[in-house]
């Protein structure tokens, strides 16, 4: 725990000082990296912890991006707009969660699979609100500076990681992991599984909503395809699986790996990059189901998921 905390503090300190030592291109890369950390940790909260895989989490990012952009245009300050984006994404997640999380995992996954497409279709067809396929261009006068966006993203990434750290140490976190290991048994010992899942799901939409808004300010232009982005769903799943689902640092490691692969292949072969992610995903699931972190952890002794490991061993 203390190790996690000091490691976290060092990383945050380094990230906070980064704008001094980097040019705009490097800072942009770091911003995208932190954005992915924020998204991956949010996905980790529902899918990594409970095993309920959301294939459509980009929908909350897209809703947040549109909320943030439209409110900024309407004259709100950027930070108020970010707050509203988080709120609206969460308000949307709540009924969706109530509806789909009563079902067994595969049904939830299937229902989420199409949700991002629904979001994109609505954004395309509701022209009066969203300008449809033309997208929304934000005037530079309204936009916060790159450094401001960077610090906002850093804040979200820290918040999302902190949330995982806190949840892992509480009864709620154990309940979520119990749902992943054996939902029927969790129910039997008195865990209100539906309530827990819905809370985790709604909470997992907060930061993607806010991050969508910050992303809109960062790129200054959004359209349905750029924010309801299927590749974003793939990346979220791949990053968390690679690093280790349901762990504190796994998603961060996953993000660094995926973003590095992206830097190496993105410019020339965006599709090759995704194909590689697909292959990595299969290999990890088959041969390293606990993610890369589990290999490191075996060498170093148990980490923050010790309790879950113990429960699992007792179960076997």
């Amino acid at each position: 725990m203390r190790l996690d905390l000091s490691l976290g503090l060092i990383l945050v300190l380094l990230a906070a000082l980064a704008p001094v030592a980097t040019n705009d291109y490097q800072l942009s890369f770091l911003l995208q990296l932190l954005l992915m950390v924020a998204l991956a940790q949010s996905w980790n909260l529902i899918s990594g912890m409970t095993g309920y895989v959301s294939f459509g989490h980009a929908v909350f990012f897209g809703v947040g991006a549109y909320t943030g952009a439209l409110l900024l245009v309407a004259g709100h300050s950027w930070w108020a707009a970010v707050g509203w984006a988080a709120l609206i994404a969460t308000a949307l997640a709540l009924p969706i969660g109530l509806l789909t999380l009563r079902l067994h995992g595969p049904y939830f996954a299937i229902a989420m699979l199409g949700l991002n497409e629904v979001g994109r279709t609505v954004a395309t067809l509701w022209v009066d609100l969203t300008e449809g396929g033309d997208g929304i261009a934000l005037s530079p006068a309204l936009l916060p500076a790159l450094e401001t966006n960077y610090y906002a993203t850093l804040f979200l990434a820290v918040l999302a990681t902190l949330a995982i750290g806190v949840v892992l140490g509480t009864r709620f976190g154990l309940e979520l992991q119990a749902i992943r290991e054996d939902e029927g048994a969790a129910e039997m010992v008195g865990v209100n599984t539906t309530r827990d899942k819905v809370i985790a799901f709604a909470a997992s939409a907060v930061i993607p909503g806010a991050a969508g808004a910050v992303y809109a300010y960062y790129t200054s232009f959004i359209d349905p395809l750029s924010v309801f982005l299927p590749a974003l769903n793939i990346q979220m799943v791949a990053m968390v699986l690679l690093g280790g689902r349901g762990t504190l640092w796994g998603p961060v490691i996953g993000v660094v790996i995926v973003m590095s692969v992206r830097e190496l292949t993105w410019a020339e072969f965006p599709t090759l990059h995704l194909a590689l992610l697909g292959a990595l995903m299969i290999l990890v699931i088959l041969f390293l189901p606990e993610g890369i972190l589990s290999v490191l952890r075996k060498r170093r002794g148990p980490g923050s998921t010790r309790l879950a490991e113990e429960c699992r061993q007792q179960g076997e």
Binding site: P106, I234, I285
Partner: peptide, 30 residues
Amino acid sequence: LIERIVGRDELTSLLVTYGLSIILMNVGLL
């Protein structure tokens, strides 16, 4: 591939076939 995931939980089969679909789609795009 698929024989390796028969009998494992549905989540595993979803994730592996999701990976397979991503590979096939993007190789197709390439």
